[in-house]
Design a protein around this nucleic acid. Structure first.
Lengths: 230, 230
DNA sequence: ACCTGAACACCGTTCAAGT
DNA sequence: ACCTGAACACCGTTCAAGT
C-alpha cells in the first residue's frame, strides 16, 4: 500500500507518435502538432518522442508516408481496370483528393518536404505507367507531370479566394474595392459564387478543381493524338 | 569628452523594416527573417519593430505588398498594348515570374497569406480585364483563374523533383528505386533531364513552366472560341 | 531498451518605462 | 513620437541520467 501501482500506459511507438500528430493536426490545425503537445496527447514527455523520430522533419516525413500509403492503396485497387487512361487518371486524382480533403493540413505538409518520399515517387510512377499504357511518349508524360503539378495529388494552391475576400470587410470597403477592381467585381457579381463549402480552405471547390483537371487532361490528350498522327 | 556623441542612426520606418526583412530572406532564407534578426540588421531592438508592424503577419503582408507593387508596375506598363489576350497574358505572367525568381521565398509567403491583399486582387482584376477584352465570358474568366491557380502569378508548386531525387542517395538506393518505380526510371532515363539550374528550387524549369502555361492558355482559347461559336 | 529532467538557444509578443 | 529592458509563454533539441 505504500507503493501505489502506477497507471500502466501503452508503450510508445513510431506509429503511435505519427498518429497522435495527425490527430492533433486534424482537430486543431498543423500549428498544434508540436512535440510537447503530441507528447502530452500520448501521456508522455516531449523528449520521449525523439526515441521514435529523429526530429520534427522526420516526423513530418512519417506523416507524409502515412498519408501516401492511404492514397496508394486506393490507386493499387484501381490498377486492375485502367483501360481508358484519361478516365483512370481522373479517377485516381479525385480519389487522392478525397483523402486530402479529410486532412486540411496535407497540402502544406506535402509542399514542405524537401526530401523525396518513396511513397510520393511511387504514386507518380503509377501515373506515368498509366499514361505510357495510354500511348504517351516519355517526353509527354514528363510534361504532363509538370503541367499537373500538385494537382496530380488532388490539390492546387489558390491565391485568390472570392469567398474569403469579404471576410472582415464592411460595405464601404467593398464599394471602394469594386471601384478599384471593376473587372473582378463584375465577374463575381455575375458568377455568383454561391458554393459556400470549400473544404480545403481555398476557393478550390470540387467543380472548379475538376474543370481545371479536365482542361489539362484534354490538352494532353490532344497532344498525344497529334504526336501519334505525325 | 565625458559624454561621447552617440553614433547617429537612420530612423526606422515601416519601409526600412520591410526592406530589411526582404533582404534577409533573399540572402539567408525566409527562416532568417525573425524579428530579432531584422532588428539587428537595422541596428535596433526587436521590440522597436512593433512600432511599424503590428505583428509578424502584418510584416509578411507588407512584404507581399512590396512584391506585388513591383509586379503590378510591370503589368501597368504592358497595359498599353494588350490586343491579343493570349500573348499579353503570357507576357504578364512570365514577367511576374521573373520577379518571383529573384525572391525564392515568395511562393511560400504568398501562399501563407490568409487575408486578401489589395495588390493581389488588383493583379487578378487586370488579368480578368484582359480576358474580358479578349472575348471571355465572366464564367470562363472565373474558371480560368482557377485553372491557372498560382501559375497566374508565375509559379507552381512542384511536388516532384527529378533533379533533387538523387541527392543523398547512393547507387544501391537508386537501383532499388528503379525496380520499384520502373515507369519513372525509364521516363527519366529517356528525357535526360539535364537542365541543372532550376531557380525556384523545384524542378520547375522555365521551359516546363511555359509548356504548362501554354497548355492551359490554349485550352482556354478553345473554350472561348467554342462558346463564341455556339 | 525505453523514457525523462534539466537545460540551452531560440522564437513572437506585451507592457511599463525611458527619452 | 519613438525606442527599449525585462519578462512571459512558447518552440525544437541535446545530453546526461534514470529504470
Amino acid at each position: 500500500m505504500a507503493t501505489q501501482a502506477a497507471e500502466p500506459r501503452a508503450p510508445l511507438s513510431r506509429e503511435r507518435v505519427l498518429l497522435a500528430a495527425v490527430s492533433l493536426a486534424d482537430s486543431e490545425g498543423l500549428g498544434a502538432a508540436t512535440m510537447r503537445r503530441i507528447a502530452e496527447a500520448l501521456d508522455a514527455e516531449a523528449m520521449s518522442l525523439y526515441y521514435y523520430v529523429a526530429n520534427k522533419d522526420d516526423l513530418f516525413d512519417g506523416i507524409v508516408d502515412l498519408l501516401m500509403a492511404e492514397i496508394n492503396a486506393v490507386v493499387d485497387r484501381d490498377e486492375a481496370t485502367g483501360r481508358d487512361w484519361k478516365q483512370a487518371m481522373r479517377r485516381r486524382i479525385l480519389s487522392a483528393r478525397e483523402i486530402l480533403l479529410r486532412h486540411p493540413w496535407a497540402p502544406k505538409v506535402l509542399e514542405s518536404r524537401t526530401t523525396m518520399r518513396p511513397a510520393v515517387v511511387i504514386y507518380h510512377d503509377r501515373l506515368v505507367g498509366l499514361m505510357r499504357s495510354g500511348g504517351f511518349s516519355n517526353d509527354l508524360a514528363h510534361h504532363a507531370l509538370h503541367a499537373l503539378g500538385s494537382r496530380a495529388l488532388g490539390f492546387s494552391q489558390e491565391l485568390f479566394d472570392p469567398n474569403g475576400a469579404a471576410a472582415g470587410a464592411d460595405d464601404r470597403m467593398l464599394a471602394d474595392l469594386a471601384e478599384q477592381v471593376p473587372n473582378l467585381a463584375g465577374m463575381l457579381a455575375e458568377v455568383a459564387h454561391d458554393d459556400p463549402d470549400s473544404t480545403l480552405g481555398w476557393c478550390d471547390d470540387q467543380s472548379e478543381f475538376e474543370f481545371s483537371l479536365d482542361l489539362i487532361l484534354d490538352g494532353l490528350d490532344r497532344l498525344r493524338q497529334g504526336a501519334a498522327t505525325s
